[in-house]
Amino acid sequence: MQSLPVRRIPRLSPFAAVRRLCLHAGLAGALACAAAPSLAAQQGQAQDYQPEVGQPGKDVIWVPTPDVLVEKMLDMAKVSPQDRLMDLGSGDGRTVIAAARRGLTAKGIEYNADMVALARRRAEQAQVADRATFEQADLFETDLSQADVITMYLLPTINEKLAPKLLDLAPGTRIVSHAFGIGDWEPDQTERVNDDCPGYCTAFLWVVPAKVQGRWSMQGQPLVLEQRYQLLTGTLDGKLLAQGRLAGDQISFEVDGVRYGGTVRGDRIEGTVPADGSRPWTAQRQ
């Protein structure tokens, strides 16, 4: 019995496949497919998209954060799998993907649609797309309130413009910036890496402080607090406070050499004196 020759079916490119379908679709199908070659070409171009360092964006040019500094920034924020991270100006997605690899739920905010598509492909390749997502959006119009950690590599002017929005986040929210500060808001921590980092190798951490400025009553004694970001001055029963500071919702200060520590819970502070002791104190906002 004579065997029949095997017909090999050529593998078609997306462009060629779309074109063949259009040629066999009849007149109506051909009219409907008139734009298909250009669409297929656009899809191919999107798959091949590679960003260039220094390319312009909406607010800043694109320069990626070195991977070694990404890891340092995540370390500074003391991230855990329970945290939700948001990266502002997420570019090729490396910070979001690195966070997702540590078990976090992470989202990138990026204005460039091609960058968003690239980041999504990279997350798929890294097998973290279930935790690493990307949204094409304007960072100034994005709700940041669901994030426990904010990361960014933006210009100082952009950081300063974002400052009021960042300061309104929940106390304890951690903000980490590559290279640039946030106006006159002094960072809580500064770190620099020297290995495998070609330049701009410094990262800054801030912890959003609770808002405590004003008059309080500490068990009948007047407590007056003056606040500048996380730094505190003021008086307790007319005596000057020293070394006053906030770390998120944790407050500490000294009066007459005695250290007070406590937790801010809205309009109430609960703590101990000395700070590591067992004698409790409370204060109520007036």
Rank of each mutant, 00 (worst) to 15 (best):
L4I: 15
V6P: 06
V6L: 15
L12C: 06
L12N: 05
L12K: 14
S13Q: 08
S13I: 11
V18L: 11
L21D: 03
L21M: 09
L23Y: 08
H24K: 13
A25L: 05
G26S: 02
G26M: 05
G29F: 05
G29C: 05
C33D: 01
P37F: 12
L39G: 02
G54I: 08
Q55F: 09
T65R: 05
P66T: 09
D67F: 15
V70A: 05
E71H: 15
K72I: 08
L74E: 00
D75A: 12
M76Q: 10
S80M: 12
S80G: 14
Q82T: 15
L85S: 00
L85Q: 03
M86R: 08
D92W: 05
A98C: 08
A100M: 00
A100C: 02
A100G: 04
R101P: 00
R102T: 07
G103R: 06
K107G: 00
Y111I: 12
N112A: 10
N112Y: 02
M115Q: 03
M115L: 13
A119N: 01
A123S: 04
Q125L: 08
E135V: 15
Q136Y: 07
A137Y: 05
F140C: 04
F140I: 04
T142D: 02
S145W: 10
S145I: 13
I150P: 00
T151H: 03
L155M: 08
T157C: 06
I158D: 02
N159R: 09
A163D: 02
D168L: 12
P171R: 11
T173S: 05
T173N: 02
I175C: 04
A179M: 10
I182G: 01
G183M: 06
W185C: 03
E186Q: 14
E186C: 08
T190L: 14
R192M: 06
R192C: 06
V193K: 12
P198A: 11
G199P: 05
G199V: 08
G199T: 10
T202S: 12
W206I: 09
V207G: 04
V208D: 00
A210M: 06
A210W: 04
K211Y: 07
V212T: 10
V212W: 04
Q213M: 12
G214I: 04
Q221H: 13
R228I: 08
R228H: 15
Y229D: 01
Q230C: 13
Q230T: 15
L231A: 13
L236R: 02
L240N: 12
A242G: 03
Q243T: 11
G244L: 08
L246V: 11
D249G: 09
Q250E: 10
I251L: 11
F253C: 03
F253N: 01
V255Y: 05
D256E: 14
G257W: 01
Y260D: 00
T263S: 12
G266L: 09
E270I: 14
G271A: 07
G271C: 06
T272M: 04
A275R: 04
R279P: 00
P280D: 01
P280L: 04
Q286V: 10
Q286F: 12
Q286A: 14
